[in-house]
Design a protein around this nucleic acid. Structure first.
Lengths: 213, 213
DNA sequence: TGCTGTGAAACCGTTCACAGCT
DNA sequence: AGCTGTGAACGGTTTCACAGCA
Protein backbone atom coordinates (compact mmCIF):
# COMPACT_ATOMS: atom_id res chain seq x y z
CA UNK A 1 0.00 0.00 0.00
CA UNK A 2 1.54 3.27 -1.01
CA UNK A 3 0.73 6.89 -0.52
CA UNK A 4 -1.13 7.55 -3.72
CA UNK A 5 -3.91 5.04 -3.11
CA UNK A 6 -2.98 2.61 -5.87
CA UNK A 7 -0.96 -0.58 -5.64
CA UNK A 8 -3.01 -2.92 -3.55
CA UNK A 9 -3.18 -6.53 -4.59
CA UNK A 10 -1.14 -7.61 -7.63
CA UNK A 11 -2.31 -11.17 -8.06
CA UNK A 12 -0.43 -14.12 -9.43
CA UNK A 13 -2.10 -13.68 -12.80
CA UNK A 14 -1.26 -10.00 -12.95
CA UNK A 15 2.37 -10.77 -12.23
CA UNK A 16 2.59 -13.20 -15.12
CA UNK A 17 0.94 -10.74 -17.44
CA UNK A 18 3.45 -8.07 -16.51
CA UNK A 19 6.31 -10.41 -17.44
CA UNK A 20 4.62 -11.14 -20.72
CA UNK A 21 3.99 -7.46 -21.33
CA UNK A 22 7.63 -6.67 -20.72
CA UNK A 23 8.60 -9.26 -23.30
CA UNK A 24 6.16 -7.76 -25.82
CA UNK A 25 7.41 -4.25 -25.22
CA UNK A 26 11.00 -5.39 -25.71
CA UNK A 27 10.02 -6.89 -29.05
CA UNK A 28 8.39 -3.63 -30.11
CA UNK A 29 11.39 -1.61 -29.03
CA UNK A 30 13.68 -3.88 -31.03
CA UNK A 31 11.47 -3.24 -34.05
CA UNK A 32 11.89 0.49 -33.59
CA UNK A 33 8.29 1.20 -32.57
CA UNK A 34 8.24 4.44 -30.55
CA UNK A 35 4.68 4.56 -29.31
CA UNK A 36 1.79 2.10 -29.03
CA UNK A 37 -1.82 2.10 -27.84
CA UNK A 38 -3.23 -0.54 -25.53
CA UNK A 39 -5.52 -1.79 -28.29
CA UNK A 40 -2.69 -2.13 -30.81
CA UNK A 41 -0.68 -4.03 -28.20
CA UNK A 42 -3.64 -6.25 -27.45
CA UNK A 43 -4.29 -7.05 -31.08
CA UNK A 44 -0.66 -7.73 -31.87
CA UNK A 45 -0.12 -10.16 -28.99
CA UNK A 46 -3.57 -11.61 -28.46
CA UNK A 47 -4.38 -9.84 -25.21
CA UNK A 48 -7.22 -7.70 -23.88
CA UNK A 49 -6.73 -3.94 -24.08
CA UNK A 50 -8.76 -3.10 -20.97
CA UNK A 51 -6.73 -5.54 -18.96
CA UNK A 52 -3.47 -4.05 -20.13
CA UNK A 53 -4.66 -0.62 -19.02
CA UNK A 54 -5.87 -1.95 -15.67
CA UNK A 55 -2.60 -3.75 -15.03
CA UNK A 56 -0.54 -0.69 -15.84
CA UNK A 57 -2.78 1.70 -13.94
CA UNK A 58 -1.76 -0.04 -10.73
CA UNK A 59 1.61 1.66 -10.89
CA UNK A 60 0.69 5.19 -11.85
CA UNK A 61 -0.39 6.95 -15.01
CA UNK A 62 2.19 6.71 -17.70
CA UNK A 63 0.06 6.67 -20.79
CA UNK A 64 -0.74 9.66 -22.95
CA UNK A 65 -4.42 10.12 -23.76
CA UNK A 66 -5.14 10.24 -27.43
CA UNK A 67 -1.75 8.67 -28.17
CA UNK A 68 -0.93 5.57 -26.14
CA UNK A 69 2.25 4.56 -24.34
CA UNK A 70 5.80 5.55 -25.15
CA UNK A 71 7.52 2.20 -25.70
CA UNK A 72 10.89 2.86 -24.10
CA UNK A 73 9.39 4.64 -21.12
CA UNK A 74 6.94 1.77 -20.67
CA UNK A 75 9.77 -0.75 -20.75
CA UNK A 76 11.77 1.14 -18.15
CA UNK A 77 8.78 1.63 -15.92
CA UNK A 78 7.95 -2.08 -16.10
CA UNK A 79 11.52 -3.09 -15.31
CA UNK A 80 11.51 -0.73 -12.36
CA UNK A 81 8.14 -1.93 -11.07
CA UNK A 82 9.21 -5.55 -11.33
CA UNK A 83 12.52 -4.90 -9.65
CA UNK A 84 14.46 -5.79 -12.79
CA UNK A 85 16.35 -2.51 -12.88
CA UNK A 86 19.03 -4.08 -10.75
CA UNK A 87 20.73 -7.49 -10.70
CA UNK A 88 19.73 -10.04 -8.09
CA UNK A 89 22.06 -12.79 -6.98
CA UNK A 90 20.75 -16.35 -7.34
CA UNK A 91 22.20 -19.53 -5.84
CA UNK A 92 21.17 -23.06 -6.75
CA UNK A 93 21.15 -26.05 -4.44
CA UNK A 94 21.62 -29.33 -6.30
CA UNK A 95 24.24 -29.59 -9.04
CA UNK A 96 22.49 -32.44 -10.82
CA UNK A 97 21.25 -32.24 -14.36
CA UNK A 98 18.54 -29.75 -13.59
CA UNK A 99 20.61 -27.54 -11.30
CA UNK A 100 23.40 -27.26 -13.83
CA UNK A 101 20.94 -26.67 -16.64
CA UNK A 102 19.45 -23.77 -14.70
CA UNK A 103 22.84 -22.39 -13.70
CA UNK A 104 23.91 -22.18 -17.32
CA UNK A 105 20.61 -21.00 -18.73
CA UNK A 106 20.05 -17.63 -20.28
CA UNK A 107 16.96 -17.11 -18.11
CA UNK A 108 18.92 -17.27 -14.90
CA UNK A 109 21.68 -14.99 -16.01
CA UNK A 110 21.30 -11.83 -18.15
CA UNK A 111 18.37 -9.40 -17.52
CA UNK A 112 18.23 -8.90 -13.79
CA UNK A 113 19.74 -12.11 -12.43
CA UNK A 114 23.15 -13.79 -11.97
CA UNK A 115 23.87 -17.24 -10.66
CA UNK A 116 26.67 -16.89 -8.11
CA UNK A 117 27.09 -20.53 -7.09
CA UNK A 118 25.83 -24.08 -7.17
CA UNK A 119 25.81 -26.19 -4.01
CA UNK A 120 25.90 -29.97 -3.73
CA UNK A 121 26.63 -32.69 -1.20
CA UNK A 122 28.52 -34.89 -3.67
CA UNK A 123 32.24 -34.65 -2.87
CA UNK A 124 33.17 -35.51 -6.46
CA UNK A 125 31.38 -32.47 -7.78
CA UNK A 126 32.48 -29.97 -5.15
CA UNK A 127 35.20 -27.67 -6.44
CA UNK A 128 34.42 -28.21 -10.11
CA UNK A 129 32.44 -25.87 -12.31
CA UNK A 130 29.39 -25.97 -14.56
CA UNK A 131 29.83 -25.68 -18.30
CA UNK A 132 29.63 -21.90 -18.19
CA UNK A 133 31.87 -21.68 -15.14
CA UNK A 134 29.61 -21.51 -12.10
CA UNK A 135 31.50 -22.95 -9.10
CA UNK A 136 30.09 -25.92 -7.23
CA UNK A 137 30.49 -25.57 -3.48
CA UNK A 138 29.84 -27.77 -0.49
CA UNK A 139 26.18 -27.65 0.52
CA UNK A 140 27.07 -27.71 4.21
CA UNK A 141 28.52 -24.22 3.79
CA UNK A 142 25.30 -22.65 2.55
CA UNK A 143 24.34 -20.58 5.62
CA UNK A 144 27.87 -19.18 5.94
CA UNK A 145 28.60 -18.66 2.24
CA UNK A 146 25.46 -16.83 1.17
CA UNK A 147 25.70 -13.53 3.06
CA UNK A 148 29.03 -12.48 1.50
CA UNK A 149 27.58 -13.24 -1.94
CA UNK A 150 24.50 -11.17 -1.25
CA UNK A 151 22.24 -13.96 -2.46
CA UNK A 152 18.58 -12.97 -2.51
CA UNK A 153 17.04 -15.87 -4.40
CA UNK A 154 17.62 -19.57 -3.78
CA UNK A 155 16.67 -22.38 -6.14
CA UNK A 156 15.97 -25.88 -4.85
CA UNK A 157 16.88 -28.52 -7.44
CA UNK A 158 17.57 -31.55 -5.23
CA UNK A 159 15.77 -34.89 -4.77
CA UNK A 160 12.43 -34.73 -2.91
CA UNK A 161 13.68 -35.89 0.48
CA UNK A 162 16.43 -33.27 0.59
CA UNK A 163 14.22 -30.38 -0.49
CA UNK A 164 12.92 -29.15 2.84
CA UNK A 165 16.32 -29.05 4.52
CA UNK A 166 17.80 -27.33 1.45
CA UNK A 167 15.12 -24.67 1.72
CA UNK A 168 15.83 -24.20 5.41
CA UNK A 169 19.56 -23.85 4.78
CA UNK A 170 18.84 -21.21 2.14
CA UNK A 171 16.59 -19.33 4.54
CA UNK A 172 19.32 -19.45 7.19
CA UNK A 173 21.71 -18.04 4.63
CA UNK A 174 19.40 -15.05 4.29
CA UNK A 175 17.69 -15.55 0.94
CA UNK A 176 14.38 -13.75 0.69
CA UNK A 177 12.79 -15.94 -1.97
CA UNK A 178 12.94 -19.60 -2.93
CA UNK A 179 12.04 -21.29 -6.19
CA UNK A 180 11.36 -24.96 -5.53
CA UNK A 181 11.60 -27.55 -8.32
CA UNK A 182 11.26 -30.60 -6.09
CA UNK A 183 7.88 -32.35 -6.06
CA UNK A 184 7.39 -31.58 -2.39
CA UNK A 185 5.50 -28.85 -0.57
CA UNK A 186 7.92 -26.62 1.30
CA UNK A 187 6.34 -25.56 4.58
CA UNK A 188 6.02 -21.77 4.92
CA UNK A 189 9.10 -20.00 6.26
CA UNK A 190 8.49 -16.60 7.90
CA UNK A 191 9.87 -13.75 5.84
CA UNK A 192 10.63 -15.92 2.81
CA UNK A 193 8.58 -16.10 -0.36
CA UNK A 194 8.36 -19.70 -1.55
CA UNK A 195 7.27 -20.52 -5.05
CA UNK A 196 6.71 -24.06 -6.25
CA UNK A 197 7.46 -24.96 -9.85
CA UNK A 198 6.47 -28.54 -9.64
CA UNK A 199 7.08 -30.11 -13.04
CA UNK A 200 4.89 -33.04 -12.07
CA UNK A 201 1.88 -30.72 -11.88
CA UNK A 202 2.39 -29.49 -15.39
CA UNK A 203 2.77 -32.95 -16.87
CA UNK A 204 -0.16 -34.33 -14.91
CA UNK A 205 -2.17 -31.30 -15.96
CA UNK A 206 -1.58 -32.19 -19.58
CA UNK A 207 -2.46 -35.80 -18.94
CA UNK A 208 -5.68 -34.70 -17.29
CA UNK A 209 -6.64 -32.54 -20.23
CA UNK A 210 -5.79 -35.31 -22.65
CA UNK A 211 -7.93 -37.75 -20.66
CA UNK A 212 -10.99 -35.60 -21.18
CA UNK A 213 -10.51 -34.34 -24.72
CA UNK B 1 -19.95 -33.06 -20.46
CA UNK B 2 -21.06 -36.50 -19.45
CA UNK B 3 -24.35 -38.22 -18.95
CA UNK B 4 -24.73 -37.74 -15.22
CA UNK B 5 -24.72 -33.95 -15.33
CA UNK B 6 -21.39 -33.49 -13.60
CA UNK B 7 -18.00 -32.80 -15.13
CA UNK B 8 -18.29 -29.44 -16.76
CA UNK B 9 -15.38 -27.08 -16.43
CA UNK B 10 -12.27 -28.27 -14.51
CA UNK B 11 -10.23 -25.10 -14.33
CA UNK B 12 -6.51 -24.70 -14.25
CA UNK B 13 -6.56 -24.28 -10.48
CA UNK B 14 -8.66 -27.38 -10.00
CA UNK B 15 -6.24 -29.38 -12.09
CA UNK B 16 -3.31 -28.36 -9.94
CA UNK B 17 -5.20 -29.17 -6.79
CA UNK B 18 -5.99 -32.64 -8.07
CA UNK B 19 -2.29 -33.30 -8.66
CA UNK B 20 -1.54 -32.10 -5.17
CA UNK B 21 -4.35 -34.20 -3.75
CA UNK B 22 -3.02 -37.27 -5.47
CA UNK B 23 0.36 -36.67 -3.91
CA UNK B 24 -1.20 -36.27 -0.46
CA UNK B 25 -3.23 -39.43 -0.84
CA UNK B 26 -0.12 -41.36 -1.88
CA UNK B 27 1.61 -40.15 1.26
CA UNK B 28 -1.29 -41.31 3.40
CA UNK B 29 -1.39 -44.67 1.69
CA UNK B 30 2.32 -45.15 2.29
CA UNK B 31 1.69 -44.41 5.96
CA UNK B 32 -0.92 -47.12 6.05
CA UNK B 33 -3.91 -44.84 6.56
CA UNK B 34 -7.02 -46.65 5.29
CA UNK B 35 -9.65 -43.96 5.45
CA UNK B 36 -9.66 -40.16 5.81
CA UNK B 37 -12.19 -37.36 6.02
CA UNK B 38 -11.98 -34.21 3.93
CA UNK B 39 -11.39 -32.13 7.04
CA UNK B 40 -8.55 -34.33 8.29
CA UNK B 41 -6.98 -34.13 4.83
CA UNK B 42 -7.41 -30.38 4.80
CA UNK B 43 -5.85 -29.92 8.22
CA UNK B 44 -2.96 -32.23 7.53
CA UNK B 45 -1.94 -30.59 4.25
CA UNK B 46 -3.11 -27.03 4.75
CA UNK B 47 -6.06 -27.12 2.37
CA UNK B 48 -9.76 -26.29 2.57
CA UNK B 49 -12.11 -29.17 3.24
CA UNK B 50 -15.07 -27.79 1.29
CA UNK B 51 -12.89 -27.30 -1.72
CA UNK B 52 -11.61 -30.85 -1.56
CA UNK B 53 -15.19 -32.12 -1.54
CA UNK B 54 -16.20 -29.84 -4.41
CA UNK B 55 -13.23 -30.89 -6.49
CA UNK B 56 -13.91 -34.57 -5.95
CA UNK B 57 -17.66 -34.24 -6.45
CA UNK B 58 -16.98 -33.34 -10.07
CA UNK B 59 -16.18 -36.94 -10.81
CA UNK B 60 -18.91 -38.78 -8.95
CA UNK B 61 -19.66 -39.64 -5.37
CA UNK B 62 -16.99 -41.78 -3.86
CA UNK B 63 -17.03 -40.68 -0.28
CA UNK B 64 -18.85 -42.45 2.53
CA UNK B 65 -21.05 -40.20 4.69
CA UNK B 66 -20.15 -40.31 8.32
CA UNK B 67 -16.76 -41.83 7.49
CA UNK B 68 -14.82 -40.06 4.78
CA UNK B 69 -12.91 -41.44 1.80
CA UNK B 70 -11.25 -44.80 1.43
CA UNK B 71 -7.64 -43.89 0.71
CA UNK B 72 -6.73 -46.52 -1.85
CA UNK B 73 -9.99 -46.16 -3.72
CA UNK B 74 -9.52 -42.40 -3.76
CA UNK B 75 -6.01 -42.77 -5.16
CA UNK B 76 -7.16 -45.10 -7.92
CA UNK B 77 -10.09 -42.91 -8.80
CA UNK B 78 -7.84 -39.84 -9.00
CA UNK B 79 -5.33 -41.63 -11.19
CA UNK B 80 -8.11 -42.74 -13.49
CA UNK B 81 -9.69 -39.30 -13.66
CA UNK B 82 -6.34 -37.70 -14.45
CA UNK B 83 -5.48 -40.26 -17.07
CA UNK B 84 -2.56 -41.59 -15.04
CA UNK B 85 -3.79 -45.17 -15.07
CA UNK B 86 -1.88 -45.74 -18.26
CA UNK B 87 1.58 -44.71 -19.50
CA UNK B 88 1.91 -41.86 -21.96
CA UNK B 89 4.88 -41.54 -24.29
CA UNK B 90 6.82 -38.28 -24.08
CA UNK B 91 9.45 -36.98 -26.50
CA UNK B 92 11.75 -34.03 -25.90
CA UNK B 93 13.10 -31.65 -28.52
CA UNK B 94 16.42 -30.13 -27.55
CA UNK B 95 19.12 -32.31 -25.99
CA UNK B 96 20.82 -29.42 -24.22
CA UNK B 97 21.22 -29.24 -20.48
CA UNK B 98 17.56 -28.78 -19.80
CA UNK B 99 16.34 -31.38 -22.27
CA UNK B 100 18.66 -34.02 -20.88
CA UNK B 101 17.80 -33.08 -17.32
CA UNK B 102 14.12 -33.60 -18.11
CA UNK B 103 14.74 -36.84 -20.01
CA UNK B 104 16.51 -38.33 -17.02
CA UNK B 105 14.22 -36.92 -14.36
CA UNK B 106 11.99 -39.02 -12.19
CA UNK B 107 9.03 -36.74 -12.99
CA UNK B 108 9.14 -37.56 -16.65
CA UNK B 109 9.49 -41.28 -16.25
CA UNK B 110 7.75 -43.43 -13.59
CA UNK B 111 4.05 -42.79 -12.70
CA UNK B 112 2.26 -42.43 -16.01
CA UNK B 113 4.99 -41.19 -18.34
CA UNK B 114 8.02 -42.49 -20.24
CA UNK B 115 10.49 -40.51 -22.30
CA UNK B 116 10.96 -42.37 -25.59
CA UNK B 117 13.47 -40.09 -27.27
CA UNK B 118 15.36 -36.82 -27.35
CA UNK B 119 15.75 -34.89 -30.60
CA UNK B 120 18.45 -32.40 -31.53
CA UNK B 121 19.95 -30.70 -34.57
CA UNK B 122 23.53 -31.03 -33.37
CA UNK B 123 25.24 -33.78 -35.37
CA UNK B 124 27.71 -34.49 -32.57
CA UNK B 125 24.90 -35.41 -30.19
CA UNK B 126 22.80 -37.43 -32.60
CA UNK B 127 23.17 -41.16 -32.00
CA UNK B 128 24.43 -40.83 -28.43
CA UNK B 129 22.37 -41.29 -25.30
CA UNK B 130 21.47 -39.37 -22.18
CA UNK B 131 22.88 -40.49 -18.84
CA UNK B 132 19.96 -42.82 -18.23
CA UNK B 133 19.99 -44.12 -21.78
CA UNK B 134 17.46 -42.09 -23.75
CA UNK B 135 18.53 -42.02 -27.42
CA UNK B 136 19.20 -38.71 -29.13
CA UNK B 137 17.83 -38.62 -32.67
CA UNK B 138 17.99 -36.20 -35.56
CA UNK B 139 15.39 -33.46 -35.14
CA UNK B 140 14.63 -33.47 -38.84
CA UNK B 141 13.09 -36.91 -38.42
CA UNK B 142 10.51 -35.80 -35.87
CA UNK B 143 7.35 -35.96 -37.98
CA UNK B 144 8.25 -39.42 -39.29
CA UNK B 145 9.64 -40.91 -36.09
CA UNK B 146 6.86 -40.02 -33.68
CA UNK B 147 3.92 -42.07 -34.94
CA UNK B 148 5.66 -45.45 -34.53
CA UNK B 149 6.60 -44.46 -30.97
CA UNK B 150 3.04 -43.47 -30.15
CA UNK B 151 4.20 -40.16 -28.70
CA UNK B 152 1.37 -38.15 -27.17
CA UNK B 153 3.26 -35.41 -25.37
CA UNK B 154 6.08 -33.28 -26.76
CA UNK B 155 8.41 -31.10 -24.73
CA UNK B 156 10.08 -28.05 -26.26
CA UNK B 157 13.48 -27.38 -24.67
CA UNK B 158 15.28 -25.53 -27.44
CA UNK B 159 16.52 -21.92 -27.78
CA UNK B 160 13.79 -19.29 -28.27
CA UNK B 161 14.13 -18.87 -32.03
CA UNK B 162 13.78 -22.61 -32.67
CA UNK B 163 10.79 -23.09 -30.39
CA UNK B 164 7.93 -22.40 -32.78
CA UNK B 165 9.24 -24.69 -35.50
CA UNK B 166 9.95 -27.41 -32.95
CA UNK B 167 6.35 -27.17 -31.78
CA UNK B 168 5.10 -27.42 -35.35
CA UNK B 169 7.23 -30.46 -36.03
CA UNK B 170 5.84 -32.13 -32.91
CA UNK B 171 2.30 -31.33 -34.01
CA UNK B 172 3.02 -32.81 -37.43
CA UNK B 173 4.30 -35.91 -35.71
CA UNK B 174 0.92 -36.26 -34.05
CA UNK B 175 1.48 -35.22 -30.45
CA UNK B 176 -1.66 -34.04 -28.74
CA UNK B 177 -0.04 -31.88 -26.07
CA UNK B 178 3.06 -29.70 -25.87
CA UNK B 179 4.94 -28.44 -22.84
CA UNK B 180 6.99 -25.41 -23.82
CA UNK B 181 10.01 -24.32 -21.79
CA UNK B 182 11.24 -21.69 -24.24
CA UNK B 183 10.56 -18.06 -23.35
CA UNK B 184 8.39 -17.61 -26.42
CA UNK B 185 4.66 -17.73 -26.94
CA UNK B 186 3.74 -20.68 -29.14
CA UNK B 187 0.86 -19.71 -31.40
CA UNK B 188 -2.21 -21.93 -30.95
CA UNK B 189 -2.18 -25.14 -33.00
CA UNK B 190 -5.61 -26.68 -33.72
CA UNK B 191 -6.15 -29.91 -31.84
CA UNK B 192 -3.03 -29.54 -29.71
CA UNK B 193 -2.95 -28.44 -26.07
CA UNK B 194 -0.04 -26.07 -25.51
CA UNK B 195 1.19 -25.28 -22.05
CA UNK B 196 3.87 -22.71 -21.38
CA UNK B 197 6.28 -23.24 -18.49
CA UNK B 198 8.26 -20.11 -18.93
CA UNK B 199 10.98 -20.11 -16.27
CA UNK B 200 11.51 -16.41 -16.84
CA UNK B 201 8.01 -15.71 -15.57
CA UNK B 202 8.65 -17.50 -12.31
CA UNK B 203 11.92 -15.73 -11.64
CA UNK B 204 10.52 -12.35 -12.62
CA UNK B 205 7.51 -13.07 -10.44
CA UNK B 206 9.79 -13.53 -7.45
CA UNK B 207 11.68 -10.38 -8.30
CA UNK B 208 8.40 -8.50 -8.48
CA UNK B 209 7.31 -9.74 -5.09
CA UNK B 210 10.70 -8.91 -3.61
CA UNK B 211 10.52 -5.43 -5.06
CA UNK B 212 7.34 -4.70 -3.15
CA UNK B 213 7.99 -6.45 0.14
C1' DT C 1 -23.28 -38.58 15.58
C1' DG C 2 -20.21 -37.46 11.76
C1' DC C 3 -19.23 -36.55 7.37
C1' DT C 4 -20.45 -36.03 2.50
C1' DG C 5 -22.51 -33.51 -1.25
C1' DT C 6 -24.40 -29.15 -2.60
C1' DG C 7 -27.30 -24.86 -2.97
C1' DA C 8 -26.52 -20.14 -1.63
C1' DA C 9 -23.42 -16.28 -0.36
C1' DA C 10 -19.18 -13.90 -0.55
C1' DC C 11 -15.27 -12.88 -3.04
C1' DC C 12 -12.12 -11.85 -6.78
C1' DG C 13 -10.61 -11.07 -11.31
C1' DT C 14 -12.04 -9.83 -15.93
C1' DT C 15 -14.60 -7.23 -19.28
C1' DC C 16 -17.46 -3.45 -20.58
C1' DA C 17 -18.39 1.19 -21.45
C1' DC C 18 -17.71 5.86 -20.93
C1' DA C 19 -16.11 10.29 -18.75
C1' DG C 20 -12.31 13.12 -19.31
C1' DC C 21 -7.80 14.58 -20.93
C1' DT C 22 -4.61 15.88 -24.92
C1' DA D 1 -10.71 12.52 -32.75
C1' DG D 2 -8.38 9.20 -30.08
C1' DC D 3 -7.00 6.84 -26.24
C1' DT D 4 -6.31 6.48 -21.29
C1' DG D 5 -7.98 5.58 -16.70
C1' DT D 6 -11.77 3.77 -14.08
C1' DG D 7 -16.50 2.91 -12.01
C1' DA D 8 -19.90 -0.51 -12.80
C1' DA D 9 -21.50 -5.07 -14.59
C1' DC D 10 -20.32 -9.69 -15.24
C1' DG D 11 -18.73 -14.42 -14.68
C1' DG D 12 -16.22 -17.71 -12.31
C1' DT D 13 -14.22 -19.64 -8.17
C1' DT D 14 -14.00 -20.14 -3.24
C1' DT D 15 -16.15 -20.44 1.10
C1' DC D 16 -20.04 -21.11 4.02
C1' DA D 17 -23.63 -23.63 6.02
C1' DC D 18 -26.77 -27.18 6.13
C1' DA D 19 -29.84 -30.98 4.42
C1' DG D 20 -29.47 -35.76 4.13
C1' DC D 21 -27.40 -40.23 4.41
C1' DA D 22 -24.49 -44.03 6.81
Amino acid sequence: VNGKGRTDSASEATTQRLSLLLRCVRTLEAEGVRTISSSALAERFGLNSAQIRKDLAMFGEFGVRGVGYHVTELKNRLKEVMGLDRTRVVVIVGAGNLGQALADSRNFNGEGFTVAALFDVDGRKIGSRSRTGVVIRDASGIPADLPPMGAEIGVVAVPPDAAVSAAEALANGGVKAILNFAPVTIPPIPGVIVKNMDLTFFLEGLSFQLARA
